[in-house]
Design a protein around this nucleic acid. Structure first.
Length: 116
DNA sequence: ACTTTGACTTCGG
DNA sequence: TCCGAAGCCAAAG
């Protein structure tokens, strides 16, 4: 799985960003955004700063978050308030013909059971 | 097999 | 924007 994550994260060009969920999907693990985190934490040498949360929000706490933002701004990424301008910087992963790491059709289950 | 760990995601309020 | 709750996944112990 690491390998898939590296491959995906490493191909994010400078000045572009992606979401955890996006990386997960591009890596072949749709819905496994958390595993992207787990992978990023466990690895080094990746452009981790180009990975954001949904809506272009920085989910890193503390100094790491500030560092991430600085790096992105340094690369030319613009921010709208506390979020990245996804409309301009959201990186679209190329469609790969490689086999998925997991069997699909597992995402059709009904979810979102609201508590309200 | 089970529990814990996570920088997630999405909804309503 | 912030919060709580539930859902989701995969690895490590």
């Amino acid at each position: 799985m690491f390998e898939a994550i590296w491959r995906v994260v490493r191909k994010i060009p400078k000045g572009k960003v992606a979401t955890y969920g996006g990386v997960a999907q591009a890596a072949g693990f749709p819905g496994a955004a958390r595993q992207v985190v787990w992978a990023l934490r466990a690895t080094s040498g990746l452009p981790w700063h180009r990975v954001l949360g949904a809506g272009g929000r920085i989910r890193l706490p503390g100094a790491s978050g500030l560092e991430q933002r600085m790096k992105l701004e340094f690369e030319g990424v613009r921010f709208a308030g506390a979020r990245v301008v996804m409309a301009e910087h959201e990186f679209e992963f190329a469609k790969s013909k490689k086999k998925s790491a997991r069997p699909s059709a597992k995402r059709s289950k009904p979810r979102r059971v609201q508590h309200g």
